[in-house]
């Protein structure tokens, strides 16, 4: 009966994962391997294709993060500098990240027992967990050559991201290095759903008021993840341990990411950080 409960929990978390995250690993891998019936994603590999990619997305009514009329949309203007295009791209990434935070919050609320926790602890778990979750969610969208963005409609090359000016060029490379290794574990969407819940329910986040109920919840999800990995990957030795080890790498990735954002805030005059992301990153590490 106990393992039946753990299977029910796995199924529940998988269902909410599919409900709240629009681009699953299964869909992303199908796009990356050209196995969808739809057309291939638009490829961004230089500044010109970046501007064209923006046009492609605007045609599909994606809201712009900054709609000041004097900024224009950059079409056919010619005089717009690469700096401006890069900054606008960064703003779009922030807008998407804020939307990602909303998705992760809804997923967290669907974890049995989460909304029963002290509200301040729910905030702390999200504040510390959400960037880790967003980085894990990026992995299925990436391969060694680039990443899907805009819900899989666009593929942006790793070389292009490396060619941006400092420190933008340093933002994604560590995530590619992590993702290429993480993808070798070959987790599927159900494995991912359980792993994300384990990350969110970390009882060692700074400032938690009531650790015990969080640890109890995490323990149950850990059992469900262990069982899931044994059943789904019977030939993959020590997979459970390997997956858990990734949590250490994740914390370092987040620390480095937050430091880069803080550096950006100092060096880029025109940079405005999304209020939700500001809230999360303030006094984080």
């Amino acid at each position: 009966p106990e393992s039946a409960d753990l299977r029910t929990l796995a199924k529940h978390l998988y269902e909410s994962y599919v409900k709240y995250f629009p681009l699953t690993k299964a869909k992303a891998r199908a796009i990356l391997s050209g196995k969808t019936g739809d057309s291939a994603p638009f490829v961004i590999h230089d500044m010109k294709s970046l501007t064209e990619g923006e046009q492609f997305i605007n045609c599909k009514q994606m809201p712009l993060p900054d709609q000041r009329p004097e900024m224009g949309l950059g079409f056919g203007m010619g005089q717009e500098s690469a700096d401006e295009v890069e900054l606008r791209f960064f703003h779009r990434c922030q807008f998407r990240s804020a939307e990602g935070v909303r998705e992760v919050t809804e997923f967290a609320k669907s974890i049995p027992g989460f909304v029963g926790l002290d509200l301040n602890d729910q905030v702390t778990l999200l504040k510390y967990g959400v960037i880790e979750v967003l980085i894990i969610m990026m992995a299925p969208l990436m391969n060694k050559d680039g990443t899907l963005i805009s819900y899989g409609q666009i593929f942006m090359t790793r070389e292009f991201l490396k060619s941006l000016r400092k420190p933008f060029c340093e933002m994604m490379e560590p995530k590619f290095e992590f993702s290429v290794k993480f993808n070798m574990l070959e987790l599927d969407d159900c494995d991912m759903a359980l792993f994300l819940a384990v990350i969110i329910l970390s009882g060692d986040r700074p400032g938690l008021l009531n650790v015990k109920p969080i640890e109890d919840l995490q323990e149950t999800v850990l059992h469900a993840l262990e069982l899931q990995l044994k059943m789904n990957h019977p030939d993959s030795l020590q997979l459970f341990a390997k997956v858990l080890q990734k949590m250490t790498d994740l914390r370092q990735l987040v620390t480095d990411h937050v430091h880069l954002i803080q550096l950006l805030k100092k060096t880029e005059i025109d940079l405005c950080l999304h209020p939700l992301l500001q809230e999360i990153m303030k006094d984080l590490y």
Partner: peptide, 20 residues
């Protein structure tokens, strides 16, 4: 609580992308 206004709001209600 004031420091994490938006997170509180997201936790207590569903917020549409437009509100963000």
């Amino acid at each position: 609580k004031e420091k994490h206004k938006i997170l509180h709001r997201l936790l207590q209600n569903s917020t549409s992308p437009v509100d963000l």
